[in-house]
Design a protein around this nucleic acid. Structure first.
Length: 295
DNA sequence: AACAAAACCAACCGCAGTTCC
DNA sequence: AGGAACTGCGGTTGGTTTTGT
């Protein structure tokens, strides 16, 4: 894990803090895409950045990493977070592993800024309901009247992820097409992670470096490929077995939470090594736990 | 239109675990 | 064995944006 001392910077440069400029983003992105991060403490030196390694790492993970799905959370993602948080607590990194394209920081922020309040509100409503012994089976009661802002957010995840992102200098490598994201169709595929490996790979392939990659022609927004991929994947029932709860209960959750999307260190040949093959998706079936619908 | 309050979110900080020397 | 360095995680902060009055 540690860095070899030979890799360590000899002189401690003065580190910049605060928001990242587009130029810094570009430098970091180019460097990591071309060389891999290796030892984070040496990244800013080699990339010509006046940041510390920790800051670079954070920026990469939370912002520049290929495959990140920026934009608003869909109702399904929200449900996933709520369900997982119920089981795991504030294990944001573990929760994030089940929301491909989302970072722990993003989920954490979303939780603190919205979900926590919503949950409290929901509980308040439930208690109120119990107290009054209301016989009403009004299903609307589960969803507290959302703020106008929230309504805007929830209109359509497709629309949201396509249009509602903040304008940004580096927006071109943030958004991901919502291939499988259709909250209005609660079919089987909607339970799947929204950014499949192939999609992520494709994204990475056309990273800002602009260098052509062979795999692009295979993966790049090819609907039939996506369909086939999904079809094959869905056929593999093992991928969605019911072992999730068992694993949790026997304390081995750490294993099943191994991230298929974790950006591992590069292979010796300065090429990225995507360890995504078999464990593309963990054994996780939301339908088992998502017994509370908020829509 | 102007101001205050609330919400949002990027980034920092500190701690714990791991690895290297 | 033990200290130093590194990574990863979760909590928190502070600046910016949005909403309400």
């Amino acid at each position: 894990m540690g860095c070899k001392s030979s890799d360590k910077p000899k002189v401690k440069p003065k580190h910049r803090k605060g928001l990242w400029s587009p130029d810094e983003d570009q430098r970091l992105r180019n460097y990591v895409l071309n060389h891999g991060h290796g030892c984070w403490s040496s990244v800013p030196i080699n990339a010509g950045l006046q940041r510390n390694g920790k800051s670079c790492r954070l920026r990469w993970i939370n912002y520049l990493r290929p495959g990140l799905k920026r934009g608003v959370f869909s109702a399904q993602e929200e449900e996933t977070i709520l369900s997982l948080h119920r089981m795991l607590g504030n294990k944001w990194s573990q929760i994030a592993q089940h929301l491909p394209g989302r970072t722990d920081n993003e989920i954490k922020n979303y939780w603190h800024s919205y979900l926590k309040k919503k949950l409290l509100k929901d509980e308040g409503m439930d208690q109120c309901l119990k107290r009054t012994q209301s016989a009403s089976s009004n299903s609307d009661i589960r969803e507290p009247s959302p703020s106008p802002k929230r309504l805007k957010v929830q209109t359509s995840s497709f629309e949201s992820s396509m249009n509602m992102e903040k304008p940004s200098a580096d927006i071109q490598y943030r958004s991901v097409p919502p291939m499988f994201d259709s909250p209005k169709e609660p079919n089987r595929s909607s339970l799947l992670p929204k950014v499949m490996f192939a999609e992520w790979f494709s994204l990475d392939s056309f990273g800002s470096s602009g260098e052509p990659v062979d795999s692009k022609s295979t993966f790049d927004h090819n609907p039939s490929f996506q369909d086939n991929f999904m079809h094959d994947y869905l056929l593999d029932e093992g991928a969605f077995g019911g072992e999730y709860h068992n694993s949790l209960s026997d304390g081995s959750s750490g294993d099943i939470f191994s991230s298929e999307f974790k950006f591992e260190s590069q292979s010796p040949g300065n090429e990225f090594d995507f360890r995504s093959g078999e464990d593309l998706c963990s054994d996780f079936n939301l339908s088992n736990i998502g017994d509370v619908m908020y829509i």
